[in-house]
Nucleic acid binder design. Sequence first.
DNA 1: TCAAAGCATTTTGTGTACATTTTGAAATCG
DNA 2: CGATTTCAAAATGTACACAAAATGCTTTGA
Lengths: 233, 233
Amino acid sequence: MKKTAPPEPETTTRSVSIAESLRCAILAGEFAPGERMIEIHLSERLNVSRTPIRAAFQALAGEGLLVHTPNKGYYVREFSLEDIVQAYEIRAALEGLAARRAAQMGLAREQMEAAEAALLAGDLLVEQEKFTQEDRSRYGLINKTFHDVIHTAGGSSMIKDMLRISEQVAPSSHHNVIAFEPRDVRRRHDDHHRIYEAILTRDGGRAEILMRDHVESVKLSLIRTLHSKPSSH
Amino acid sequence: MKKTAPPEPETTTRSVSIAESLRCAILAGEFAPGERMIEIHLSERLNVSRTPIRAAFQALAGEGLLVHTPNKGYYVREFSLEDIVQAYEIRAALEGLAARRAAQMGLAREQMEAAEAALLAGDLLVEQEKFTQEDRSRYGLINKTFHDVIHTAGGSSMIKDMLRISEQVAPSSHHNVIAFEPRDVRRRHDDHHRIYEAILTRDGGRAEILMRDHVESVKLSLIRTLHSKPSSH
DNA sequence: TCAAAGCATTTTGTGTACATTTTGAAATCG
DNA sequence: CGATTTCAAAATGTACACAAAATGCTTTGA
């Protein structure tokens, strides 16, 4: 009969769905950094055996969210301030590379449309005097969309993989960017315009430099913020 | 009794030693790219159950050496020429970053000694008119030593992890560098001198640019080589 | 009181059996 | 003869049982 139906088998397995859930939970902070992940506890909570739990742990360890010590188990990875700063430097280097490649290779029509939509939406947002929490959340999404377009246009899957890992270092790093002053947000949104312009004009060198400085500025803001109030964690 | 003995428990597990063996075997090319890794076959060959084999597979998948498809299994990852070129670009960006940081932070005494030993050993090697296969192998190690010093001095564990992954893309990429003409090797060894000089003088910007171009030149040599004789795999 | 040794509990590592899915080839139909 | 279906073999996913190691607490000794 209908043999045409299943183009996407959509077949998944317990291991991968558990891994997905755990990834979200960890990134949402539902497990404390450094916390030990005990197989039995989760297996009882989720009503599965330890086997798929172990598989999920191993997958997440591969992504860098958990660390494994033989005969001791899996722990939620914890990041030092130094780690986070270095992650931003890596992001700056890799996003700069992606921007350069995007400029060299050019953008497809749909990518241009997506980028311009993100820029326009950002324009409307940053016009406002004050930002509500929802505005910040929305700008976080806009920001992510813009960067994703460039990753897709200029990055291989490998660059995207590495960027994903380095973005996980500072949990909800894309939300961090919206934790700053409206003035900073406006400046960074203006960066986006310049970067996009450089990509459109095929100026790879300029796109790279602008993108690098753009990401580094987030790092600097973060350092400034943490220095002014070092107690908050 | 002698309780002071075991400061290093040195306790390992079958899974991790199997993962180590498999990693070497894959990098040595003992498994063809795209080949399916069947748990039972290896478990029979190694006289262990499927469990530690699975664990090793999952670990190697995390490192990017294997890819996993649910309900289908693990396959040796295969890289396109595009992947390899992009890996070199990533390496160029990340090694440039590491060189800049090394220049900014300075080298420890032992790192200086190791780098200078590598430079000296390289000087003696490149003096020769013609290189034997052993010379090339030796220069590969010297090259790796020099780069490792900079990774250690300037890179966090995260940069080192990512560099390790991107180096695995082109199997035995550190051997590739010695597959070229003596003239190229001399040029690259001279790059090392300049990079080291820039690091010593704390010129981070110059160290970064030099290192980036150094790695990119390997990429360009590779492209040139593959274009001239595209049949060889 | 404190520290070290011993022991029970907990947790991870491994082997094994069975269920589910995929795979590949033989069989069937057009 | 070729394409599709069917079915058995093979491989992966999961559960569970036991072994080995780590952990924590109690006990013991000075």
